[in-house]
Design a protein around this nucleic acid. Structure first.
Length: 355
DNA sequence: TAATCGTGGCA
DNA sequence: TTGCCAAGATT
């Protein structure tokens, strides 16, 4: 039988001893800093976020600084963290907060959810952690803890199942100590009730944990039905002229949206025709740089990069969405991940033969 | 409802 | 290699 009333006391008692209390966003706990951390932590592990968070809040210490910065520089600080819509939404939300609320992060749930990039759970986390307001969260940690403790089957992504989680969360969340409770249930999920090799022997909820009693820890929470990963192939043209490469801003939609990358084509024939045109000749010398394969969660991407060497005297045409990038010069642009590695490979000195 | 969006760690 | 997952939101 589930002991709903003692859920929070047990968790809070455990938290006092074993909770994480020294994460970067827990120091100087302003709503802005908590907000930024919650966005970065969406679908991203704590260890990955920490160095990005440190650089980000140093450069953008408050809403005003973030709102005033160019999007390119925000994306530059996000480059390598992934899910770049988060950065675009964060930047846009900062400008909205500046323009409509004088730079003060909203302190009510509805106003937060109305901002881009903030959903129900993230809004709840911000208000609970930064303002000690009683709000629910439903992240991967909470889903895992609740699914096991109450034996909730079914894929949490399904609406009907998600409703069960929210309802159960409502029942176990105490009236007071919102910040501690929210942090506690996340800490339990992150450090003890982990996906692999959970330490049930140390868990304060073990004595009435349904999954543990039924030996179903490994199968909860339920996973979605596996899907086949579609494969896409694209061609990139790497124009090089006097040590610089041509970059263009990628469209906002799609992979690496808003970051800078190489001119992209669906087919090699289309790429070659464009290369000839830009080189201003009847033909252009194209060098295959070796296919790059990216395996993402939901699809595979094969990139065929083609190097186009332009004459040093070729005109340095530059439009609004184009720039010539030198790898050794400082940049404030967000670069797509393969761009960074490709540019690094191009800049590396050619290997000498052994004498 | 289901697909989309990144990267790094792990078995 | 391959699959799965991590402080989810958006369309």
């Amino acid at each position: 039988m589930l002991q709903t009333e003692s859920f929070a006391p047990r968790l809070l008692s455990w938290f006092a001893r074993h909770g994480r209390g020294d994460l970067p966003w827990q120091r100087d706990r302003t709503p802005y800093r908590v907000w930024v951390s919650e966005i970065m932590l969406q679908q991203t592990q704590v260890a990955t976020v920490i160095p990005f968070y440190a650089r980000f809040v140093t450069r953008f210490p408050d809403v005003t600084a973030l709102a005033a910065a160019p999007l390119d520089e925000v994306l530059h600080h996000w480059s390598g963290l992934g899910y770049y819509a988060r950065a675009r939404n964060l930047h846009r939300a900062a400008q909205l907060i500046r323009d409509t609320r004088g730079g003060a992060v909203p302190e009510d749930h509805a106003a937060l959810v109305a901002l881009p990039g903030i959903g129900r759970s993230t809004a709840g986390a911000i208000l609970a952690l930064a303002n000690d307001q009683r709000h629910l969260i439903l992240d991967g940690n909470v889903k895992r803890v609740l699914a096991r403790w109450a034996g909730i089957g079914g894929f949490p992504g399904e609406a009907r199942v998600a409703a069960q989680f929210w309802a159960l969360s409502e029942n176990v969340t105490p009236a007071a100590r919102a910040a501690d409770f929210t942090q506690a249930i996340m800490d339990l999920g992150a450090t003890l009730c982990t996906q692999r090799r959970p330490r049930c022997g140390d868990c304060p909820l073990a004595k009435d944990c349904v999954a543990l009693a039924a030996d179903r820890i490994a199968e909860l929470p339920a996973r979605r039905a596996p899907r086949k990963r579609p494969r896409r192939r694209i061609v990139w043209l790497v124009y090089r002229r006097a040590g610089a490469v041509l970059l263009e801003r990628r469209p906002t939609t799609g992979i690496w949206g808003g970051l800078w990358g190489f001119p992209e084509f669906a087919t090699r024939a289309e790429a070659e025709a464009t290369a000839v045109k830009r080189a201003g000749r009847r033909s252009a010398r194209l060098t295959a740089l070796g296919t790059v394969r990216h395996v993402f969660t939901h699809f595979e991407l094969e990139i065929e990069p083609l190097l186009v060497e332009l004459d040093r005297r070729a005109p340095l045409v530059e439009q609004g969405s184009e720039t010539w990038y030198k790898s050794r010069a400082p940049t404030r642009l967000g670069l797509a991940a393969p761009v960074t590695s490709l540019v690094a490979a191009l800049a590396a000195p050619p290997r000498r033969r052994r004498p």
